[in-house]
Nucleic acid binder design. Structure first.
Lengths: 258, 258
DNA sequence: GTGCCTTTGTGAAGCTACGCACAAAGTGAG
DNA sequence: CTCACTTTGTGCGTAGCTTCACAAAGGCAC
C-alpha cells in the first residue's frame, strides 16, 4: 500500500543492542495478551472436544471473537508454536497456554462469604474444571456455618488464617458484603495471600505485590446504561444542569450496595 | 455556569477561541473513562453519606483508587464541573455523573436463567439501588417457573419476547448455561434488545449495534493464576515442552471432519 | 484593590495496544 | 528437484490511554 515504507533489504540486526533481548520466552507478556489467553484456551477446548487436530489462526480467532493478527501476535509472545502453511496443533497449543497460565498445577481457592453469590460460585462448575479446587468456604454468620455446600462444610471466618495456612490457599475469593470486604482482605493478605478476586463493590486497599481482580455487576450495568442511553438519543440530554431542588439526590438513594 | 446553556441560540463559534472547539459536551467520551465513572460515583456516594460538601481531585482519586491527573482528565470530558482552589461539589458531581451514565432514568432489566447465579443476581441489592429495576426473571426449566424470587415470579422463556416488549426491557442479563446462551442472545437481539450482560462462558455473536459486556469468573481466576505463578517462581518453568513426548496428535479417533 | 495559596484543566510526552501487510517458512504436487 | 499455495510471525504506522507538569483561575486575607 505504501511502497515508500519499504526499506532497502539491509540486514537489520546491526542495530545498537542497548535494549534488553526480546527472547521468545521473555517474561514480559502484555497484560492485554494474558487477559485473552483464557479465551483462546476455551475455544481450543471446544475444538479439542470435536476432535479437530489443527487449527489456523484465522479459524481460532473467529472462534474466540478476535482479530487473527492479534491472535498470532499474542501467541508469538509464548513462543513459536505454529507451523506455517498448516496452523496450530490443538492439543499442543492447549498444553502450552495452560502451562503459561499456570493451569498445569493445582490452585487451592477459598471463598469468603457464603451468601447468594458465594453459593453460586461454590456450585459453579467452571472452577474445578481447570486446576482450581475449592479448599474452603467461610462465613461470619453462625447460621450458615456448618451448612454443606458443593460438598464442603462452611467454616467460620475465625478459621480464616488456619484454613489458608493449613490448606495452602493461594487465591481468595471475597463474596462478602461491601462493609466486610476490606477487613477480610486485610486478614488474608496478612496471612500471605497475594491473589484476590473481589466481588464486593469496594476498592480494596492492598499491600504492594498483592494482585486484586474485581468483578462488579453494578459497574457493568452502568456502562451498559451509558451506551444504551447514547443509542437511544444521540447522547445525554442537554437538559437543565441542576433540576430545581437543592437536595435532589440524597443519601439513601444509594449505598445499599451489597 | 455553562454559558452555552443559557444562550441556546447564540452561535458558539463567535467565541474568541481559535483552537478546535473542545465543546464541553463532546460526544466522544473515551471508553476507559466511561468504565471509571461508576467508580467515582460510588466514591462520591460514600462521601455524600458522610456529609462531605466538596472534595478535591486528590482525595476523590484516592478514594476511587486512581491517579488524580487521570481523574481530572476523566471529569473534564463531562464538562468543567470543578472550582479551582476548592475542588468539586459532591452533590453536583454525583448528579452530573449520574446523568452522563444515564442513571437518572429507569432501566428495566430482565434476567434469563434462574440458577444459582441468576438467584444471586436477583437478590443483589446493587441492582435496584441505581436506576436498575428487575422487570422479569425467566427460565426454561418448568420446575423453576412459578417460583417467587426477590418478589418476582419466574416466567418461562417462552414468554421472553412478550416480556421484553411488554415491559420495555432494554437490558438483558444472561445467566444461563453456556449451551443456551447464544440461543437466548439471538432471541433477545431479535426482539430489539441492544444491551446484554453475559455471565455464560461463551463468546456471543451479536448483530451490529448490540453491546455485550461479559463477566467471566473462570477467566479472572486464570489471570490471577498467571500472576500468582509468576510471583512464585520468577516465571513459568522452562521445563520440557511436551511431557507426553510421543503422543501429540493421536486423538483423531472421532474424525468429525465434514 | 494586591498578593499568596490552593486546585483545576490541559498541552505534551511517553507508553501500550491494535491491525495491516508482507517476507519467511512450511506443505504438497508433479 | 521446482513451483504453487498456505499460513505463520512480525515490522511498522496509528490510535488511544496514562502521566507529568504547569499556566490559569478561584478563594482568602488584608
Amino acid at each position: 500500500m505504501r511502497p515508500g515504507t519499504h526499506r532497502p533489504s539491509v540486514p537489520l540486526e546491526h542495530r545498537h543492542v542497548t535494549r534488553r533481548i526480546p527472547q521468545a520466552r521473555d517474561r514480559g507478556i502484555p497484560d492485554a495478551t494474558v487477559a485473552r489467553l483464557p479465551l483462546y484456551l476455551r475455544a481450543l477446548n471446544g475444538l479439542s472436544e470435536r476432535g479437530t487436530p489443527t487449527v489456523s489462526s484465522e479459524d481460532l480467532a473467529m472462534a474466540a471473537g478476535v482479530n487473527s493478527a492479534k491472535l498470532r501476535k499474542d501467541l508469538s509472545h509464548l513462543g513459536s508454536y505454529g507451523t506455517r502453511g498448516v496452523g496450530y496443533d490443538v492439543q499442543y497449543l492447549i498444553y502450552q497456554i495452560s502451562r503459561e497460565l499456570g493451569l498445569t498445577q493445582d490452585w487451592a481457592v477459598a471463598i469468603v462469604g457464603v451468601g447468594n453469590l458465594g453459593r453460586a460460585l461454590a456450585n459453579y462448575g467452571g472452577f474445578a474444571s481447570r486446576g482450581f479446587r475449592i479448599a474452603g468456604l467461610l462465613d461470619a454468620d453462625p447460621a450458615v456455618v456448618g451448612d454443606r455446600i458443593a460438598g464442603l462444610v462452611v467454616e467460620h471466618t475465625d478459621e480464616l488464617e488456619s484454613v489458608i495456612a493449613g490448606r495452602a490457599v493461594s487465591i481468595v475469593v471475597i463474596a462478602t458484603p461491601a462493609t466486610a470486604a476490606q477487613h477480610v482482605c486485610d486478614r488474608v493478605t496478612e496471612a500471605g495471600v497475594t491473589s484476590i478476586l473481589n466481588f464486593a463493590p469496594v476498592v480494596l486497599n492492598v499491600p504492594e505485590g498483592v494482585d486484586v481482580r474485581k468483578v462488579d455487576l453494578s459497574i457493568e450495568l452502568q456502562i451498559l446504561a451509558f451506551h444504551e442511553q447514547r443509542k437511544a438519543n444521540g447522547g445525554p440530554i442537554m437538559a437543565e444542569e441542576w433540576p430545581g431542588g437543592v437536595e435532589q439526590v440524597n443519601e439513601r438513594s444509594i449505598g445499599a450496595s451489597s
